[in-house]
Design a protein around this nucleic acid. Sequence first.
DNA 1: TATGAATGAGATTTCATTCAT
DNA 2: CATGAATGAAATCTCATTCAT
Lengths: 194, 194, 194, 194
Amino acid sequence: MSKPITKKDELLNAALALFMKQGIKGTTTRDIALRAGISEGTIYRHFASKEELAQEVFRQNLELFWRFLRRELRNSSTPEDMLEAFIRGVFEFARKHHRRYSFVFSAHHTELRRLSRNKMKPKQMLAKILRLGQAQGRFRPIDTNLAAAMILGMITQTIFYMRNGLIKVSYDEVVAEVTRSCLSVMRTETLAGQ
Amino acid sequence: MSKPITKKDELLNAALALFMKQGIKGTTTRDIALRAGISEGTIYRHFASKEELAQEVFRQNLELFWRFLRRELRNSSTPEDMLEAFIRGVFEFARKHHRRYSFVFSAHHTELRRLSRNKMKPKQMLAKILRLGQAQGRFRPIDTNLAAAMILGMITQTIFYMRNGLIKVSYDEVVAEVTRSCLSVMRTETLAGQ
Amino acid sequence: MSKPITKKDELLNAALALFMKQGIKGTTTRDIALRAGISEGTIYRHFASKEELAQEVFRQNLELFWRFLRRELRNSSTPEDMLEAFIRGVFEFARKHHRRYSFVFSAHHTELRRLSRNKMKPKQMLAKILRLGQAQGRFRPIDTNLAAAMILGMITQTIFYMRNGLIKVSYDEVVAEVTRSCLSVMRTETLAGQ
Amino acid sequence: MSKPITKKDELLNAALALFMKQGIKGTTTRDIALRAGISEGTIYRHFASKEELAQEVFRQNLELFWRFLRRELRNSSTPEDMLEAFIRGVFEFARKHHRRYSFVFSAHHTELRRLSRNKMKPKQMLAKILRLGQAQGRFRPIDTNLAAAMILGMITQTIFYMRNGLIKVSYDEVVAEVTRSCLSVMRTETLAGQ
DNA sequence: TATGAATGAGATTTCATTCAT
DNA sequence: CATGAATGAAATCTCATTCAT
């Protein structure tokens, strides 16, 4: 029932925090051991190398993000609802688990040698939502990968600016605004006046 | 008339290419010297440290990008034209000078100790365009930093996907589509039917 | 009747096999534990250190070799018979207990800090045989240590070449040939024709 | 004309001496650097790894030994002369360049991952001499690899015993004795009385 | 300016040994 | 007796920087 916080968990947490702040290359095993309250040698009882530790940190947090998003989408039925939930989900995850979010989305993992193929599950989830909306005639027939790119770009860049204090507007307003913008991008252009 | 490629230029080019591929920390002075066809010691004739070399690479390319964008915007007058030109400009720069673009926009420069304050000239240019449009009543009154974030996100993420072969649509269509989407985000919502 | 293979035996066997292949320094306690199917900690239940384990492996196998040789020599009476039996004995031991033979004769034990003084029992046995033969006037009066060196060299080098597939002749012929050569080295040169 | 004793030579000499005394695994890069009077890092400017350094030490000394032997054999014409010269050559090399000899013949190189194929040039030289003698009917028709094994064994083991003070006889006598023994092993058995 | 060998501080990794369970 | 996670000292290796030429 309880989580026996093992050394391995300490290790992963410490690594996540440091990789985030300093990048993978910029973080030494000594830093990690120190923060995790373990000895350097212990790292190598759990991972074959610093590289593998980083891979695991990335994999684990991507997985978490993925599960978070799925939960968020559970109660949505229409494509519009789903898109809204998706956007809200990403913002929420970034707010509640900022370190995990950042490591997954930030560029630090470009330092990893090779990422698993399925690395962008969330991106695929988004593409699926868009295709569904198109099939139902609710979204305009734009290339789904292109649309996914734009939507993801809007979300992540906005979060990045927010974190850096560059956006004065409140969190809720930002989410609402991004949602509205994404919908406007996908909306079928049926309106007479246009 | 010609560009007499000096040692220093070789050096900067080699550094740019390698920083891009491997990050700054991930690139050794040995790598750089090898690729530039000079000796390691020579690096220190031109720069006080690897860090300074990286700073210069960044500064130089940002400057280039900045000039490129300004030229692109020269003939635009209305805010819409300017926004269009801005978007086209970024795409063009990314196409013609991919390495430079990537280094400026990629996250590698997060490895740099301290970035110059004026680092985000293009972002400010974008915000200025948006404010102008708002002043003229052509863009809706959204927080300009938020809007700038969304627009930049759309552009950069799309370019990233394109470079990675994830978007099947032609270059021109992509630019057109992103432009349309950005405009739809900024458009004043006056339409009767809504 | 049976050999109840205890953990300690597993340990000694695993150690022997690995020390042979990789040397003592080249074998880690982890390797040993893995191969013995026990945990690393268990090694220290039985031996105070890896060094002591190696000492014991060496001691045990030298003892075995020594007993094997003595049994082989039991029924010999003349010095020639004894020399023949000695040679045959070494070859047989090498054939039946290759790992043990190799560890005893190979150089790996040079890695051991201090070898027991009686380490070269077999060599002394050989010298004794030679002295006996000389006392009886059957072997020529050559320095016995020198002769022992030559004879041992012939035997061990031949075994080494055989193990490495460098000798095409059958096992029996090799033994016969080495025996003949050793005898020719020790033979008194009385023959008329010379 | 002069030998500018470079750091690399210092390095190889120091490594040879230490590998000999302590084995390869038993010698640390720190030891080597200290003895060579250079810094540890410098080792890696010349060799990719300690392993490669050891390979080079081995290769170099084998080469030296090989050249030494060839010079020794230059003036021999009959197979008997050549065999004598070969034996004398090995003893001489061991006397003049003991460290080099030992490293080439001792077992330390069993610690090397993989030896070059041509590792045993001297052995092949010996086999060639034996075949020549057989072709001329001066040596008896024994398998040449077997004979080579026996002869090499006699030589190396004798040298080993000598170095360890186990043989009381003078150097010249030892060489003479080993030579005589080798010849007696190869001699055609024509004598009536046998 | 240019070179490239050398440096040394520090990073990663290894491994025999210990110890709480 | 047995375990195996943890340790920490030491080993290997890296690399930005210096310096004599």
